[in-house]
């Protein structure tokens, strides 16, 4: 048992890497998603069509294939990309596509009269979206957005396959060193659960904060 406790710092290093990847991806994916979703709704056709293509293609691909494409294809053009960068870019592309669709749905669900009222006051497009439409779309955007964030924490485990030492990678390594398979896998599972439980609590808290009296 002592040997397992000795190995815990290695697992925690993995947790740090997993959190790093997840946070970067959620931020990047949210930025892509907000503009992607608005582009899908309000963009001119030359923007809307490629965005639709991006969203539909990425949502049809396994996440792992997206990671491998980003990891293996650029070197064919003499562009070096680290495993860490490939994972962050691929997961962001993936999260961006999903969040685009979430934002599109959420914004489309806001009553048209709200936009009319803001127009009638003389607001131009961006102030109308930021101050009137998006705040009202948030309550329906945040729950699926939270799910996407959890998917990204889980998805960061695929970084193992391009040799990034995140939590699953460290788990595998520690099991090899200690032979305590059951204990270490259960510890890793509990760590993933704890991270995602925190993410879903945070999502629920955010949702309560943006939910005005209806």
């Amino acid at each position: 048992m002592a040997s397992i406790i000795d190995e815990l710092p290695l697992l925690l290093q993995g947790v740090v890497a997993t959190l790093q990847i997840s946070m970067l991806v959620v931020v990047a994916g949210s930025i892509v998603g907000v503009f992607g979703g608005l582009g899908l709704l309000f963009g001119p056709i030359w923007l809307r069509a490629p965005l639709r293509g991006y969203v539909d293609v990425v949502r049809g691909l396994p996440l792992l294939v997206t990671i491998f494409i980003i990891y293996y294809v650029p070197p064919a053009f003499d562009i070096d990309i680290s495993g860490f960068a490939a994972v962050v870019v691929a997961l962001s592309i993936f999260a961006g596509a999903h969040i685009s669709e979430i934002v599109r749905g959420g914004v489309a669900s806001v009553a048209k009269g709200q936009s009319d009222a803001a127009k009638a006051l003389g607001l131009t497009f961006w102030p109308r979206i930021w101050s009137v439409v998006l705040p009202q779309a948030l309550p329906s955007i945040i729950p699926p957005w939270t799910n996407t964030a959890i998917e990204m924490v889980k998805g960061s485990s695929l970084a193992y396959l391009v040799s990034v030492s995140e939590l699953l990678f460290q788990t595998y390594k520690v099991v090899g060193r200690t032979g305590a398979a059951m204990e270490i896998y259960i510890a890793a599972a509990l760590l993933y659960f704890a991270i995602n439980f925190a993410v879903s609590r945070f999502g629920a808290w955010l949702e309560r904060r943006v939910r005005y009296a209806l």
């Binding site: 009319d116 009222a117 803001a118 009638a120 006051l121 003389g122 009137v132 009202q136 005005y212 209806l214």
Partner: peptide, 15 residues
């Protein structure tokens, strides 16, 4: 538009 204010049938207050 800012010079022509509108009041709507469904109020359209910002909730």
């Amino acid at each position: 538009r800012a010079e022509t204010a509108m009041v709507f049938q469904q109020f359209n207050l910002f909730p």
